[in-house]
Amino acid sequence: MLAKTILIRLLSTAVTLFGVAVVVFTLIRVAPGNPISMMLPPGATQEDIANLNALYGFDKSLPEQFVIWLGGVLHGDFGTSITLRRPVSELVLGRLPATLELSVMALTIAVALGGFVAVIGARKRGTATEVGLDLTSGAVLSIPDFLWGLVFVLLFGVLWPILSISGRIDPRIDFDFTTNFYLIEGVLRGRFDVVGSTLSHMLMPAMSLALPLAAMIAQLLKQNLKEVLVQDYTTLARVRGFSETSVILREALRNAALPTIALIGVQFTFLIGGTVIVERLFAYEGLGNMAIDAVINRDLPLVQGIVLLFAALFTVINLLVDLSYTFLNPRLRNG
């Protein structure tokens, strides 16, 4: 039964991804402006134009172009970037680690901060503190990451300039990276200057992405904790002499966490989507920043590659969330 569920979800994911490919391809081909003309030096002959068109496959019919492109994609060939003149797959995979590190960092902050506030709120339930936390999280979650980013730029970039407001790492740092996971590699190789500089560049964008999600987690988890805290087994734990805080941490949290885990799963893709503008705001060298440049420069193969990678990332995360939810919730296991 479970295998059948997984198979159906996998097929559905494939159909969605195919749809994404069709939408991206169509959008880009109807875009005005000929990218070829931008690549040619002044005084290029008609023959040069025809050659380049043939090279990039623009001389064929649209369905033909789509089939050729999709065939390439399925073999891992995403074409060549028009502006950067390097394989799209190489460029995109080179930037992916930066975006992944940022997203995971943001997710970690959101879970830690949201969880902390939820526990405090549940501990202080019925008091003014709870009302205050509710109002704050309500306001925090309605402000999107872009505005938080700007607030942080003003606070920690100008008013109290302790963090770096642009880039991914201090360019003066001399370090020969073997991967593009700067933070992880810095930690593994014990280079604390690298770790410090990466964190100082990553903290503000990560916080901007994390805040709205943290507020959502705080609200939902607190609500579920309060529901669990009136049940018999938590009363029993209190009778056995556990303090309220340890009742929450030891007994209630485990049973109240499931809806929050589902929420985090769903919201994680939204968070990754937010990296596009937040990376732009902080000039952070990730996928999203590259994507906006690619759109502005009409670098069609690069745009296609990045959008497709994002879409694949989103659908795979959603698939994993669905499956893990089925796995974690015994009631859904036979569904």
Partner: peptide, 24 residues
């Protein structure tokens, strides 16, 4: 519902930037 699924697979800001670039 399938269209919604496909649409949700796009990062919205990138989608917006792409659409505006296409439409001018």
């Amino acid at each position: 519902s399938r269209l919604v699924d496909i649409w949700m697979a796009f990062p919205p800001v990138l989608f917006a930037v792409l659409l505006v670039a296409v439409m001018g």
